[in-house]
Amino acid sequence: MKIIIAGGTGFLGEHLERYFTEKGNQVYIFTRNPKRSNEIYWNAKDLGDWKNRLENADVLINLTGKSVDCRYHDKNKQEIYTSRIESTHVLQIALDECMNPPKIWLNASSATIYVHSETHVNTEENGIIGDDFSMNICKNWEKEFFAINNEKIRKVALRTSIVLGDKGRAFPKLKAIIRMGLGGKQGRGNQMVSWIHIGDFCKAVEWIIQNEEISGPINITAPEPISNETMMRTLRKKLNIPLGLNAPVWQLEIASIFLKTETELLLKSRNVYPENLIKRGFRFAFPNFDQALAQLLKP
């Protein structure tokens, strides 16, 4: 296949590129800073020569968006919003001009679209979508994505949770926190953590591409969410760190200022289940946290 990954130089894009290239596919990356022969310049908001690469492509994957691992002041909020909306909008314009557009367009979204929930399990069908900054970002992102129905293009919004990988942002940070002796529960520890191993993320993307009946929003999460307290305890055990200090909310609020992040990333309960993947027969290589850790912590 000919696969285009817009915003593909980050953690997810690098793994998807490697995954599909190793299977013999041709992968092109849209990026602001092209350095390799398969990388094409785009600024994620204006039409340019990059649009010609979409002609006769099989797959478009859009991962563009400023990281939410930052302080939510007005400037960052605006960049988080515009980076997602503008990139999705300009891709739609470019695809409308294609004679032979990609057969499928997968656009990043987030499991953060669902409300904080410690007991209610959010599936695509019964998930509760709320009203705050992060959820509204996701709602507007998907609204822009699905605004136009292209008969030639199947659209899938990837409601992705925390993706765990050796070189990802989340997993190395968790290991560092625990090794510093700070690996206790965060807040009350009751918040559910929805996650997925990077291998299953790539596998799920490929599976969605191959299964033509899949469309609309899809939860890209492992089938077994885990509480924050259990997650931290399990990881401490695997790393042979017997103790970990708990971090009450007030400490996290102070620490988040110095770390230039937001406590929401740790304290929001993302209790999400991949019902559509499971119902249609997708099989996870790492369905539970212990299995994922066993692979991630291999010597």
Rank of each mutant, 00 (worst) to 15 (best):
K175T: 11
E151S: 14
M99G: 02
A57T: 07
Y72F: 15
N52C: 00
D58V: 02
L174S: 11
D131W: 11
S109C: 03
L91S: 07
N136K: 13
N56Y: 04
G181E: 09
E125F: 03
S83W: 03
M99K: 11
M135Y: 13
I113K: 02
N136V: 05
L182F: 13
L63K: 09
P172Q: 06
A157V: 08
Y114V: 02
I93S: 09
T119D: 14
A94Q: 00
K143Q: 15
N56W: 00
R71P: 07
K173Y: 15
G168E: 04
L174E: 11
C138K: 03
S110A: 15
E118Y: 01
K139V: 12
L95V: 06
W105M: 00
I162W: 12
L63F: 08
E55N: 06
K75V: 12
G168K: 02
I80C: 01
P101V: 00
I128A: 09
W141V: 00
I153C: 06
L174R: 13
E125Q: 12
M99L: 08
D58P: 03
N76T: 05
Y72E: 00
S134Y: 00
M135R: 15
L54Q: 08
L182C: 10
T88Q: 04
T88V: 01
R154P: 15
N100A: 03
F133P: 00
K155L: 13
S67Q: 03
E124Q: 07
T123A: 02
Q78P: 03
P102N: 02
E118N: 14
E151I: 12
V121R: 13
N122S: 11
R159F: 03
Y81C: 03
E144Y: 08
L54C: 11
A108R: 01
P101G: 04
Y72S: 01
